[in-house]
Design a protein around this nucleic acid. Sequence first.
DNA 1: CTGTTAGCGCCTTCAC
DNA 2: GTGAAGGCGCTAACAG
Lengths: 345, 345
Amino acid sequence: MPAEKKRITVLDVARHAGVSQGTVSRVITGKNWVSEESRQLVEAAVRELGYVPNPMAQGLKSQRSNTVAALVSDISNPLHGVFLAAAEEVLDEAGYLLFVSSTHSQPEREVALLNAYGSGRVDGLIVAHADESNKQVAQVLKATKLPIVFHDRESHGMGDAVIVDHMSGALEATRYLIGLGHKRIAVLTPASKIRPGRERLRGYEMALKEAGIPLDPMLIAELDASSQEAYSQTRALLEHKHRPTAVICLGTGMLAGVLSGIASSGLKVPEDISIIGIGDTDLARLHTPPITSLKWDIGECGRVAARMLLARLRGDAKSGLQAETTRVPVELMIRHSCAPPRARY
Amino acid sequence: MPAEKKRITVLDVARHAGVSQGTVSRVITGKNWVSEESRQLVEAAVRELGYVPNPMAQGLKSQRSNTVAALVSDISNPLHGVFLAAAEEVLDEAGYLLFVSSTHSQPEREVALLNAYGSGRVDGLIVAHADESNKQVAQVLKATKLPIVFHDRESHGMGDAVIVDHMSGALEATRYLIGLGHKRIAVLTPASKIRPGRERLRGYEMALKEAGIPLDPMLIAELDASSQEAYSQTRALLEHKHRPTAVICLGTGMLAGVLSGIASSGLKVPEDISIIGIGDTDLARLHTPPITSLKWDIGECGRVAARMLLARLRGDAKSGLQAETTRVPVELMIRHSCAPPRARY
DNA sequence: CTGTTAGCGCCTTCAC
DNA sequence: GTGAAGGCGCTAACAG
């Protein structure tokens, strides 16, 4: 028997089952009623022929793809991974497939992806763009007809959002350090062009203000997410004549760089310097000493994002209800990386 | 001016530009020659109307989607993330979009995804399935017409593969420990149903055999990738009357569990117990002491996989050349987590 | 309940 | 070089 190479279509199934295309389609989609007999016939035919519907054709006709895309800066960031895995689980239950693309924080790539996805390839979007102030991206986002859920970004009415309460977290962390007696608290923060950076910095500043400690710009280092830069910035910070007694690491991927920076400068944690990290990673938990860290339920963020999107998808419209925002709390996990500062004055 | 809601099509563009559909299509796809004048006209119309081609329709007609999917067990595994990010970069340059889906190591989900993707949604697949011995998955894989590149799995002629030389790595690591004087070397390994587990264990056994050390089944713990289980298994291992003097952690995500297991049993690394990890993570690098680890260039794996797939895609067929396999070497990064065993006999 | 019939938006021979 | 026309595989709106 020669290997057939023609792809099998509804028509083949219909013929094989002795019914019409329409009937086959009905049992495939599960919409409308079909007699039990026809259903059996069709299902048998599908099985025997090994028929699988062509999603392109389905999508072209129905204008839906049962598919959702997520845009993140970088898949290899474990935090994104957890978020996505959780979102995917919820989406999957609802019969949706999740496509993930990373933008590598390049706005041009975001625009390209948004266009690629925005024109019928998927039914909805989960977005965490790399620069909230970028005009181009904002414009494409606004132009998109698809429902969007933002992850830790300001939605500006362009869709729903699940946001993390970084402000309160940073506030609490800074207060904790101040309570321990610290006055020179350095902070390494990701760019303020995205919400997490802005909010965390805001919390830090608020705590300082509260305590009447003047803000020292020398103690604030804004940097990208690479641990390379965290390392060098940490070293620079520690070489100051009047070095900080504590450092808060407000970027997710920075802890590694900060820790090696401190290690290489011969300082001891927490005797010489206190440190607070963000994101409850293996590294923070298993470091010697374990690092006091800000944490939040990132899996929950993913689940919530997925559910919000599904709600829009079912109510099938970007319209309908008002744009919603869900806020996820942040908690300070106190471990052993903070102590009162040495009396040095 | 009322907001138009009809989606714009080639026809709209054609009218706007005063040419025919066919001409528009030609400039969009870039195939066939078009007069400079027509091209200008069309491009202007596209810009003014904000036209974006409908990928569904394009795909339906052309039978290609310029799209590739990757199936991994879990996006939140940083190693997969690095692999995927690298692959995506190469794919992107070639004009392909990468979709990532995680299977959560469930064969049923793999089958479902393979079917979903296999029928025209994408042009090619990168696969790292969760159980190489699963019949169903193997069958679907074999039935797929799409070109496949396997990541660290046996291809069995079903496609190309990029594989890591875990065997040599484990062999070297075990030899190293033996050279240090260890005889009771425990090993925590992921299930042997996937290649990495099998190969690493093979290397371990080979080193033992070479040295004339009998294999003690009590010292081999096979477990899933969760650090929970790594923790408890480690504790169990250490409570043996005749406990191991070294442990090799052959699973990527296990190190965290192993380290906390050791910490909570009060043992010191490397004085009381030597340890070798896999995968060059922040945790391994920054732990006190830094953990000697097996490493390999996982980004390179991603790039190679992408390139192999692109080669098939261009030669557009699963057929053509023979199935290829690329092997990536493993290296032992010696740090400070291993020492000669205490004399205890 | 089921068969028939239009297209969905685009690409791609065909003639011209 | 360009316009016209057919159809990719499927769904949905119609009759029956």
